[in-house]
Nucleic acid binder design. Sequence first.
RNA 1: CGGGGCGUAGCGCAGCUUGGUAGCGCGUUUGGUUCGGGACCAAAAGGUCGGAGGUUCAAAUCCUCUCGCCCCGACCA
Length: 638
Amino acid sequence: MGGESWRRTVGGPLRLRPMTQNAAESTRFNARPGDITRWSQTVIPTLREAPAEAEGPSHVLLLRAGYIRKLGAGIYDYLPLGARVLRKVSEIVREEMNAAGASELLLPVLLPIELYAGTKRDVDYGDLLFKISDRKDATYALGPTHEEPITELVRGSITSYKQLPVNLYQIQTKFRDEARPRAGLLRGREFIMKDAYSFHSQIEGSGGLNETYDAMYRAYSNIFTRCGLSFTPVEAESGPIGGSASHEFMVNCESGEDTILRCAASGYAANVEKCEIGARAAGTLTEAPSGELAEVHTPNLPGIVEVGKFMKVKPDRMLKSIVFQIDAGPGVKSDGAKWVVAVVRGDHDVNEGKVKTAVRAMTGNAKAAIALADEKAARAAGFAIGYVSPRTVNTVPGTLLLIDADASGGGFWASGSDKPDHHVKHFNWRREVGAKLDDAGYVNIADVRNAIVGDPSPRAEGAKLEAARGIEVGHIFKLGTKYSEAMDLNILDENQQRRPVIMGCYGIGVSRTLAATVEQNHDANGIKWPLPLAPYHVLITLMKFDDEQTRTTASDIARQLAAIGLDVLIDDRDERPGVKFKDADLIGVPIRLTLGDKALAAQSVEFKLRNDDGKGDLCPLGEVVSRCAAAARAGGLT
RNA sequence: CGGGGCGUAGCGCAGCUUGGUAGCGCGUUUGGUUCGGGACCAAAAGGUCGGAGGUUCAAAUCCUCUCGCCCCGACCA
């Protein structure tokens, strides 16, 4: 971080409110007064039963509590409560993005398909790209992310390296033609996202990509902290630049779809795709055989588990051999290596990214691309797909062999037999593969599998990796020059060199954050909003909706709360108390004030937090505002 | 895109096997009794049974096609 930079890139949000010694002023939570809404005048259609299709706590509760309504598969209305929460998330995002030196703009949703053809993303994105056509039959895409339009914009408006860096963001609806929308707001076809793009003339130093990346990392940490969420930033699959060039921000939640791994000793955390594994004991590839090689007929068995059951061999004693094909990369001459067979234990999963890294190291070709082998091509080359064994390193020309440490030892192994419907028992590395094992140009022991719970930590000796689940709500990464090269975004640098602009990209799922917050904060009765995201901070429940004194008192309190910046919902419906209390718990407003006869007679109201059990306690009218303010502050409202 | 399932009142469901006047609970409306954690009694409104075609005297029910939705998998912010 260049400390002299005029740009504010560190720390919390700028607040417009001037510092003051005045005690009353200092309890204010917002520059503007809070909102006062009467339940009877808005639309909060709570449901006793959730629609049958609702899946998962956030989906069920947001539907039941009247925050959202489904309009189609993966398409939702945001009702007044839902819209208010979205606004709260967005405001926090805005404040932190602005404080970190980014500028908000708004790009179109409707984009000519040609824009995506230029970067081949119309193909790469495939069916995920939402396409529509107009009356002239011209095709458009509904923006899934906005690298192309933003690059197009910057190409036409930034003309000198002296104008860099810039970081531009928008908060907007995105579209993806998901194969299977699910879990309500967590995976919709239409969702709200904050996406930011930064542009730089260099990677290092003041104004460089790394500086902004770090600033975004801090801004994201601030944002999710301010939202009141428990979250973990994890290392994710790195982009083209390498290193720790990508992080995902995961909301910690057992119901989350993503698995993350972390090491308590070092603080290291990564997603499954990225997670490194610490040093493991490997075999010497010289161990003695466990017995005679024996062929077993294993017809019509679809997976390793079934084969294992059939042969009475546990998956952790089986070798799984996965075939990848190597594309040497444009302009790079192939050195003859065409295939890679990655071998892991049957109970482990091959990691494509790690295979790629290992292949690059092995061949010295840093641009080599690998992909799961095309089945037809692999068969034609001599691989019995589904029954491949490591012996193919000897039988198929141009084949490299990568052996995971845990698959490299001696003892009993079962493997494919390189002919359809057959496996072998007592596979032995030395006997079956032979001299090629000693040729490091062809055979390497490497980390080529996904990490799992209990694996050694890559950062602290002796420590083990723990697994946790989460929901991805933010992702930052270093794009490099992929888009600037594809779209001719070049700028002359100070040495008069014409160079592609270096880019970074930073996303936050705004609507997903709303849902993830509910996933993380709820109980059997309903939602429990963290104060900063709550649609209203205080709910005033009238026991007698038509009692004049009750109504006046409620209005009074609401006005005073609004004056210090708290948002107030007054439940003035003609409903029985039980209904009101159930709904109060369901919609999850953090602070509840109940105005009933007995309390009012004692010049008091009942004060209860959504987080507390029981019925709350009496609070004298004169102390209500300060008590709410204290609770709001304790709840993380600023 | 593969496999499975479901479309009947605002929500949850029954009816379909064996064709014959479309039902139940919740919610809604009206009246009454109630009134501190989803009250009770009475009355009422609300449905082209997803759509199209076919078989039949007659179709929510049987057949064909189609659309929508959900779940598992593949995929994924």
